[in-house]
Amino acid sequence: MDYFDIFISILGSAIRLSIPLLFTALAGLFSERAGIFDIGLEGKMLASAFAAACVAYWTGNAWFGLIGGIGVSIAFSFMHGFASITNRGNQIVSGVALNFVAAGLTIVLGQAWFRQGGRTGQVPPEGRFSSIILPGADMMRDIPIIGPLYANVISGNNILTYIAFLMVPVSWWVLYRTRFGLRLRAVGENPGAVDTAGISVAWMRYRALIVAGFLCGFAGTYLSIAQSAAFINNMSAGKGYIALAALIFAKWKPVPVMLACLLFGFLDAFANFMQGKSLPLIGEVPVQIFQALPYILTCVLLAGFIGTARPPKAGGVPYTKER
């Protein structure tokens, strides 16, 4: 295998690995730009992965699975909202709590319903999102450089992958070109001003959380019925936190979010590829370095060595009307 083929195969797997990150980071983008810290992304992803796998298993329909995943994810968003908006509780505590509830509940219910040690049943092929071969992929395969790139990286992904990339410009448009987006960003920066304008801060933040739940549902669904064919214990395995890191790394902006997710996905794919191989001159590089790199990079960014990351001003602060 020459270097180009290796590069193509790593790139393909990088894209597949970055999709759940992308959906989740965009979800975090909506809630954090509205001033709600969302540590619970991990839990939402896990719960929706479980729900999607269950529904897809019972109905044999991937789209019903997606709806199930989104539904559960939005339900978790509502719990987060109820605690942190309606009751003005600590947003981080609420997120941590939801992560625990999701981690426990998926295994407890999974064991009670399927009795496979926390796994759900194997989802039938029609209950999964399978890969789509774009037109002309086979024809173009023999063209040097562009051919393999088109056939193995751009084509051959499942529909959720394309939706993920579509969500990037859509998110940008919603956030920066609609009234909803303007108000959403305002509510994250200066909720008092939004309130003065006669717009309900609470309802605005709830809507942001619903959008976040919606997007996170895609991420979970992707994990359980697109990337694999069943839910497995603790399937999200910290991806929600990597997505959070990507969101910060991207300084809370949609297009950089996509690039950060692709970078972190690429690191993951590269780590998988490097397992047990050695680099020229350096020798064998421990895989753990690649696993830690997204977090290290984010910390370096936060230290102010790569520009500055300025979070939304009102983030994490419950809004109280003046009395």
Binding site: N87, N90, S94, V96, A97, L98, F100, V101, A102, A103
Partner: peptide, 10 residues
Amino acid sequence: GMVILFAGAL
């Protein structure tokens, strides 16, 4: 999780 939710966030 429930304890953190009710005793903490709520």
